[in-house]
Amino acid sequence: MLTVGQVIDRVKANVGIPWREQTVDNLIAGTPEIPVKGVAVTMMATLDVLQRAASKGLNMVITHEPTYYSHQDRTEPVQQDSLYQLKRDFIQQKGMAVFHFHDHWHGRRPDGIATGMVRELGWEKNNDSQNSRLFTFPETSLARFAQGMSTKLGIRTMRVIGDPQMPVRRVMASWGNVSLMPGVPYLAQADVLVVGETHEWELVEYVQDAITSGQKKGLIILGHLISEQAGMKYCAEWLKGFITDTPIEFISASEPYWRPDQPVK
Rank of each mutant, 00 (worst) to 15 (best):
V11L: 13
K12H: 15
I17Q: 15
W19V: 11
T23A: 02
D25P: 10
I28V: 15
G30W: 06
G30S: 01
T31H: 06
P32S: 10
E33N: 06
P35L: 15
K37H: 13
V39T: 14
V39N: 06
A45Y: 02
L47G: 08
V49Q: 11
L50N: 04
L50D: 07
R52M: 12
A53N: 09
A54F: 13
S55P: 05
K56L: 13
K56V: 05
G57K: 05
G57T: 07
L58F: 14
M60G: 01
T63M: 08
Y69A: 01
S70A: 11
H71G: 10
H71T: 02
Q72P: 04
Q72N: 15
D73W: 00
D73R: 02
R74D: 14
R74M: 11
T75P: 12
E76M: 12
P77M: 10
V78I: 14
Q79H: 12
Q80S: 12
D81L: 03
Y84R: 12
Y84H: 14
K87H: 07
R88T: 08
D89I: 04
F90Q: 05
I91H: 03
Q92C: 12
Q93F: 13
K94V: 03
K94L: 04
G95K: 01
H100V: 04
H100S: 02
H102F: 11
H102V: 10
D103P: 06
R109V: 13
P110H: 05
I113C: 00
G116T: 07
V118P: 05
R119I: 00
L121H: 07
G122W: 06
G122V: 04
D128M: 02
Q130M: 11
Q130P: 00
N131T: 01
S132C: 13
L134A: 02
L134Q: 02
T136L: 05
L142M: 10
